Simulated assay, not measured.
Amino acid sequence: MRTIAEINDKISRQQAIVLTVEELKARVAEVGVTQTAKEVDVVTTGTFEPMESSGAILNLGQTDPPIKIRQCWIDGVSAYAGFGAVDLYLGASQMVEYSSMEADGDESRSSTRGGGHVIEDLIAGKSVPLRAIGQVTDCYPRASFETTISRDRINQFYLFNPRNLYQNFIVGVNGGDRPLFTYLGPLQPQLGNAVYSNPGEISPLLNDPDLQLIGIGTRVFLGGAIGYVTWEGTQHFPLQKRLPNRTPIGPAATLALIGDAKQMDARWVRGCYFKGYGSSLMLGVGIPLPVLNEEVVAHCAVQDKDLVAPVVDFSIPRRVRPTFGLVSYAQLKSGRLTIDGKSVRVAPLASLYLSRQVALELKQWIERGTFMLSEAVAPIPHDRVFIPQDLRGS
């Protein structure tokens, strides 16, 4: 048995033994769970995938005379202004409404930009235009405001993401007769392709299936900076059916995350666009798992062949769509699936390479003693049910 305090003491002395989750799986195959648990202090996990339920809080600082912003556009993307006078929330999936690029004739590029791209530009240190309309009051007499902002010319700038890190997800296919443009990207008709988004055995929450090590206050790698778990994520559904190894058979737990965007690196925070669907944010997230006992190692030893996801037909426009059953991540990563006797090509939406790089960079932070583990202040709830908005009689 170890404690987080004991592990942190070793980290502070740069004596902690840290393995990425892939390295740990290989070590378990060599020497077994018991010996690996004796040797290793921390396991690092990672993912780099679209997380559209993300966004940034910005505080501009007051103008003179003061303004109470009620409508605002940052580089043509509408930012929510319904709380503080100069507090804004810029959602990753909010699409551009107007852009200076249109004046240059680049309408195609402007129509594919969204909040995720603006967040990436700000993190990269670029300057972006801002236009605001105010509600004139005695306290705030200014009616409008235009300026250019950057991360260094505003007060607070931090990501606050209501839903990140799905614990497992779905595989999308299209059994219909026309192409579909989805949050998984284009799905070709007649089972022309399949797309999955979770990186499988290296994904953070699949290596701690019951969230015994992850709770409110857990320190994480978020966009190249230190972040924290703030709450359960939206659509958190821990009651999903599970395999005997405790991993869910479909979308389950989620986390809400927060972190200082001024410290982030645009390498790990990238705006993206899905044709016919909209904008999103590719985000690198890594979670360190302290090796407190053998059970931690046993869970982290799970392999792609032991993880499954449902194959969902998007051609049926319903909340609950039919499935073609469950497939393992080992099958998905082979690049081919067989569905109804047809061989279907498969591609990941997550970057498996960059997911591994997140885990590796977090490992290096811990080995250098620059990233300490944190005790959770409260657990993530394990009893949330999913409440759909079906039509109900009056």
Rank of each mutant, 00 (worst) to 15 (best):
R321E: 03
P381L: 04
L58M: 08
K305L: 12
Y98R: 09
V171Q: 02
S93Y: 13
K305Q: 15
C300D: 01
V302Y: 00
P379Q: 10
D390K: 11
G271N: 01
A5P: 03
L60I: 12
G175H: 12
Q303C: 07
Y89R: 08
V40I: 13
E23P: 10
G91L: 04
G227Q: 05
R345A: 06
E22T: 14
P141F: 02
H299D: 15
V43P: 02
S100W: 09
D210N: 13
E39T: 09
I149H: 04
S78R: 15
I69F: 07
G125W: 00
I74T: 03
A376Q: 10
G61T: 00
P162A: 08
G172P: 13
V297H: 01
Q94S: 15
A252H: 01
L184H: 11
L307W: 00
I339H: 03
A29Q: 09
N161K: 04
I11S: 03
F48K: 04
D104Y: 10
F314N: 13
G46T: 00
V229L: 04
F48M: 04
N59E: 15
T63V: 11
S150F: 04
N59G: 14
L206I: 01
H236M: 04
P288V: 04
Y277F: 14
N59F: 14
K305E: 15
E367F: 05
G55M: 07
R27Q: 09
Q364H: 11
T20I: 06
G84M: 09
A359V: 02
T148I: 13
V296D: 01
Y89P: 05
W73E: 06
A85L: 09
F145S: 08
A256M: 09
I67A: 00
D75Q: 08
V377A: 07
S100F: 12
F83A: 14
I214K: 03
I316H: 15
S279D: 05
P388C: 03
E97F: 13
D41R: 06
M101S: 07
D75N: 11
L165A: 07
A359L: 03
L184C: 10
S78T: 15
A266L: 02
V86H: 12
K241T: 10
H382F: 04
R178L: 11
A85K: 11
D306P: 00
V291G: 04
I4V: 15
G82W: 05
P244G: 10
Q188D: 14
L90D: 00
F324G: 08
G335H: 00
S99W: 01
G46P: 02
D64S: 10
G393Q: 14
Q389G: 06
T34G: 11
R219I: 11
P65C: 14
R131A: 15
T20P: 04
P238G: 01
A16K: 01
P310G: 06
G105W: 03
G76C: 07
Q235F: 14
Q212N: 13
E367Q: 12
